[in-house]
Each structure stands twice: as structure tokens, then as C-alpha cells.
Design a binder for these strands. Structure first.
Lengths: 343, 343
DNA sequence: GCTTTTGCCGTGTACGTTAACGGAACTGTT
DNA sequence: AACAGTTCCGTTAACGTACACGGCAAAAGC
């Protein structure tokens, strides 16, 4: 299907390209009658603006502000995806500006957000993990008509251009299932929680809720599930006590510190049979996975999240096309056997 | 980092844009001395051709020939990914032309391939599942300087612009692992093979090899593994005989017909305990997965394969950027719990 | 010496869109 | 009738690249 140009529209309508342009851009100053005529011809002629011509003319560089933490490999991978996407789109005028905040510090988030906003970006990618403050910031962005994309966590009320991340509740549900494959009866499980770290985190809560839901649905008593609260500088002596009845233990680690727990189990020379599941394909977790010390890792595809974040803004800003508002990452199950092929 | 334009290069070199253009396009007719000067300035000025300007000028539509089978949902999903990608890139001049062949018929492949080549496409996406003929075709494409991308299966010798698909061997290995989770000793397994269908298929062979490798590595006797050859219009009476010793059976279905096998098991009222794994997230398999009649499905991400195939050619033809030659799909493990989030 | 060939280079136009600018035609006011 | 204000529209110059075309000089040919 061939596409018509504004010049052709102008010819057919008996007006000039300037008029056609005013109609198509809703810049006013055109008689209702001619406006309708132009629109009619445009529609019939399958008019779509030529992306190349538009961007050549505008000759704009698109500044994307990236508002993320950087404290671990998960976030670094997320950044890597963003950088790779940006370098692909570099020739199309996409440029990045990173603003890094400390996710245990609300003020640092606000400070960096304000810096980002002051830079008057064309689009923003952010992880709204500090919810209240993120809502404030998004309200500001909305007022300034700056599109923003969420990665990692969602904040439905803030109505982002797109959310890119995982269904955390369901991932916990899946974790419970995987821990119980091959066992017909409900099994004892321990959830490890870092008191100084996970307690502020909605994501962790949702994973745990999903985990419990599985036990409920199976008709297993929730008393099977214990929560091990771990303060900073922890010891896992308590693990032994929880496994006396049958010597087998299920460990659900709802954050990315699986490797730490495993190391601790080793140092306390725990010998009961265990099945362990954790989150995030960071190198230390991959190591323990390959060593058969962890059975499953659920991957959040941080690289892809970052990549898709940039792509969403690219589509919105440059192509001016539709963007899927909800882009759920798959609930990737990683084992020793397939971890090499995960991204 | 700002980018220089050919006009600026021309100015600095004291020549005209025409000369700069001749240098950059290696069209000759320019003195060695000025050529070197121009290249030097271009390099120092970080020259990159403006994608918008180039494509506006060229005003080309890029015709991609898609050479795939269409006999089942797997291939249809693959096509869907291709179509979606193409519609995203439509405004950039990407157009598709489908050529559908019957994968059990060499001649139909050759016929469609030749049609595709005669259409003088700018790029080709194909599944080289009929290996010998595919090599012929690729040789022709190479002679015509037409870039081609492989999806689904690879053919290393043909040196495609990119291969996009799964490591089939490793996927079989993974399947064996998943079937044996929770069992410390080697377990009896049955592999189902469609004699009229799978026998020509290299992919199936590799999956089975990978499956066996797992047993070997565990030190389990290969005699545990039986192969059930299924002719057209099959009956699965034999299944019962293979499970008398302990009543538990592992089923490995190395193709996408898992749902058929399950239906047969039901109709023969087989009551032994089974764990079943198959391939491909087609609706019928999703149904039996959700019904708890199948434990795992390994997904090949056909949608993503198709999407990435178009993207690879887009990058090569329009952006003129680098394309990763080996793009392995993750070995996606699907269960009842996460199948909704797979793509 | 002249013409012809060759090597090298500049000019000009077009691709489709955008938006500033200016101007014609019309309306309303004094 | 003169003027200002409003509404509507056309003209034009970019944006950076690609390439056809023509042209000038030096080298080659007779």
C-alpha cells in the first residue's frame, strides 16, 4: 500500500503544503471546510508522516533521563540493557543521562529526580521503588508532559507510558511450586528476610504472599512456613532447629542474596537435605547454581527490562507509535542446565 | 559527542560535498591525497551518516522475503512475531513477502525459495530445516549479495547474517533434568517418536541426544530409556508394559505433540504416576499444562525468534549497524504457574 | 599544434517535512 | 472611506545525504 505525501495531498486539495501541515499538526488557522477536505484526502491516501523526513527536519537529539539505583549487579545489568539499546538508537538521536540514587534513602531519590527534571529530558526511565516520592515526581513529569516508563516495579496510580517488569506475586507462587515438585505432601519451608533491607520493600512482600498462596491452595497448613528474620551481621544457627522433624528443608530466599545464605549453610555445616530457590541471575548466584548448591533461580530479565524501557521511549518519541502499557517479563526459571542461555 | 556532517567535512577539507561523498562511498574518482584528508577529518569529527537523511534521500522500501512452513501454531507464532516487527518498522520502509513451503516436501521448498529469489528481495528470513536444499539456496543468495537470517535451526556452514534459535541439544539435556527433579535414582523414561515425521528432523535427534547425555552423566544406564515409535494413526498400548516395575513413568516428547500423547494416555486409562515434558507453547499444550496433565513445556520463543529476525535485517539494511551472528533463545521452562507470562 | 582522453572535482537537485514569515481577503470600527 | 484587526493561506528555506551531470585541467594521442 503506497503512502501519500503532504505535497500530493496539497495538490489534490488545491491548497499548499503549508495548509496541509497546519491541518495535520492541528495548528489552527485553517478554514473548517478545507480542513475536512485535507483530512479526507489524507485518510484515503493512507497518509503516514515520513519518519525520516520529520526527524531530519527536526534534527533533534532526544535526551532520556535514567533514574535508577546502582548498588548491585541486578541494577547494573538493567543499566547495561539501557546502554545497549541507546547505542543502537544513537544514530537516531537518542542520548542518555544517568541519575543514580540510593534506594534506602528517600532524599537521595528526590534530589536526583529533581536534577533529572531540571535537565528537561524528553523522556524518563525510572524504578519507582520509593513509592510515595515516586508519585510526587511522576506528577511533576506529567505536568511537564514528559513521558516516563517504569522498570522493575509498577505504580499503577501514576499511569506511566509503560511498565516493564515482573508479576512479583506470581513469581512467589511459582517459587513455592518449584520447591515442592516431587513431593506429594506439603513441606516445611523457610523464608529468609533481611530485616534491615527487605522490610521496606513491597516487592519482597508480594513474593512472599504469592508463596503462601500456593500452600493455601494446596490445602497445606501455613504453619509449615517459617520466616527467618536476619539482622545485619547474621548467623544462621536457627536453621537446624527448624528441620529436626524430617531433616529436609525448603528455603525460599525472596531477594537476590541467595548466595549469602548458601555460604552460611556451608559454614554451619548443615547436612539436611535442602531445596533452595532464590532470585536474580547475578554472578554469585550463578556460581552456587552451577555448584548444585541452589536448585532454581528466578530471573527478572533486568537486561531486557532496560532495553525495552529505552525502546518504549524510542517508539513514543521518534516513531510516534503505540507503546504497550504493560510489558510483563517472563517468569524465567533458571537451573544449572539452562542458565547459560538466559539473558 | 557531536557528529560532523559531510558539509562540514567538505569545508574543513577545502573540497565540495560531492568529493566527500565519493570518498565515503568509495566511488573513486578522487585523488589519493584528498581522500586521505577527508577520511582523517571524518574520523576526527566522529562522522556517522545521518540515518534519517540517507533514508529520506534513498526513499527505498526494503522487501523482506520470509521463507517458512505454516503447518502448525509454532510456525504461525513465528510469523506473528515477524509481522509485528514489520508493522513496527513499516514507517521505516520495511515490507514483507511470505513464501510458504511444506516441510515434508523438498521440492516445495525449492520452488518457494526460487520464487523468493526471483522477487529480488533486500533480505531473507528462512528456516533451513531442509538442510541440503537450504544450502543451495543460501549459496545463491550469497552470490546475489542478499543477506539472510536463519530462524529455528542453524546451518553453520551457510554463514547467515544471524542465527536465531535454541540450542536443541541442551534443551534435551534440560528436559532430562526436569523429569528427574526429586528423584535420587535414575528413572525409567520413554521417548516418543513419530516415525512419519520426526525421522527426517535433525532437531529431534539433537534433543534426544541431549536427553541421553544427562542419564550418562548421572551414571544411569541408558537401558532405562525406551523409544516408543509411533506410526501414523497410532495406539499407545505399549505404554503399560513399560511401567510394570514401579508404576512410575517419565515421558519425554521431543516435539510439539505432547497434547496428543496426553489424550492417548487418558483414553487408554493409564494410571501409573507420570511426569511429562514436551515442547512448544501451543494452545493445546498450554491446555494440558494448565490441567496438570503435563508438568513442563520447553518454549522456543517462536514469536521472539521472528521478531528478532526482522530486527536483525532492519539493523543491517537500514541502520547499517552490527548484528549479533548468534542469538540463542533462552531455554524457557514453562509450568502451569508461569505459562501466562511467557511470550 | 590540435584534438581526445583521463583524472579529478564542483554544482545542483531531490527526498518529505516543518515552521517562520508575510500577505491577501474579509470583518468591524470610527 | 480609512483603518485596524482577524482569518486564512502560500511561499520559502532549511535538515543531511546521494548522485547525476557537467566542467576544467592535465595527460595522451595523432
Amino acid at each position: 500500500m503506497k503512502r501519500i505525501t503532504i505535497k500530493e495531498i496539497a495538490q489534490q486539495a488545491g491548497v499548499s503544503v503549508g495548509t496541509v501541515d497546519r491541518v495535520l499538526h492541528k495548528r489552527g488557522e485553517v478554514a473548517e471546510k478545507t480542513k475536512l477536505l485535507v483530512l479526507k484526502i489524507a485518510k484515503e491516501g493512507n497518509y503516514q508522516t515520513n519518519v525520516f523526513a520529520r526527524n531530519l527536519k527536526l534534527n533533534k537529539t532526544y535526551h532520556l533521563a535514567i533514574l535508577l539505583p546502582e548498588d548491585n549487579e541486578y541494577w547494573k545489568t538493567q543499566r547495561k540493557g539501557i546502554e545497549d539499546a541507546a547505542s543502537e538508537y544513537e544514530s537516531l538521536g537518542v542520548q542518555l543521562q544517568f541519575y543514580t540514587f540510593d534506594r534506602s534513602n528517600r532524599d537521595s531519590f528526590l534530589e536526583q529526580s529533581n536534577l533529572a527534571i531540571e535537565s528537561k529530558p524528553d523522556g524518563v526511565i525510572l524504578a519507582p521503588i520509593i513509592t510515595d516520592e515516586a508519585e510526587q515526581i511522576c506528577a511533576q513529569l506529567k505536568r511537564g508532559d514528559i513521558p516516563y516508563v517504569f522498570v522493575d516495579s509498577n505504580l499503577k496510580s501514576a499511569e506511566p507510558l509503560a511498565f516493564i517488569g515482573q508479576d512479583t506475586f506470581q513469581s512467589g507462587y511459582l517459587a513455592a511450586k518449584l520447591l515442592n515438585i516431587g513431593f506429594d505432601n506439603g513441606h516445611q519451608a523457610v523464608i529468609t528476610i533481611y530485616t534491615d533491607f527487605d522490610s521496606l520493600n513491597k516487592t519482597i512482600d508480594e513474593r512472599i504472599s504469592g508463596f503462601k498462596k500456593f500452600y493455601l491452595e494446596q490445602g497445606w497448613p501455613l504453619s509449615l512456613i517459617s520466616e527467618l528474620k536476619i539482622p545485619s551481621g547474621f548467623e544462621i544457627k536457627e536453621v537446624k532447629e527448624w528441620t529436626i522433624n524430617n531433616g529436609r528443608l525448603h528455603l525460599f530466599i525472596p531477594n537476590s542474596r541467595t548466595h549469602q545464605i548458601v555460604k552460611r549453610l556451608e559454614s554451619t555445616q548443615y547436612e539436611g537435605l535442602t531445596r533452595i530457590i532464590g532470585y536474580d541471575k547475578i554472578q554469585l548466584n550463578v556460581d552456587v547454581l552451577k555448584d548444585n548448591k541452589v536448585d532454581f533461580i528466578i530471573n527478572q530479565n533486568p537486561y531486557r527490562q532496560g532495553y525495552l524501557g529505552v525502546q518504549a521511549l524510542y517508539k513514543h518519541l521518534i516513531i510516534k507509535g503505540e507503546v504497550a502499557p504493560l510489558q510483563y517479563m517472563p517468569l524465567d526459571i533458571l537451573t544449572k542446565e539452562n542458565v547459560e542461555f538466559a539473558n
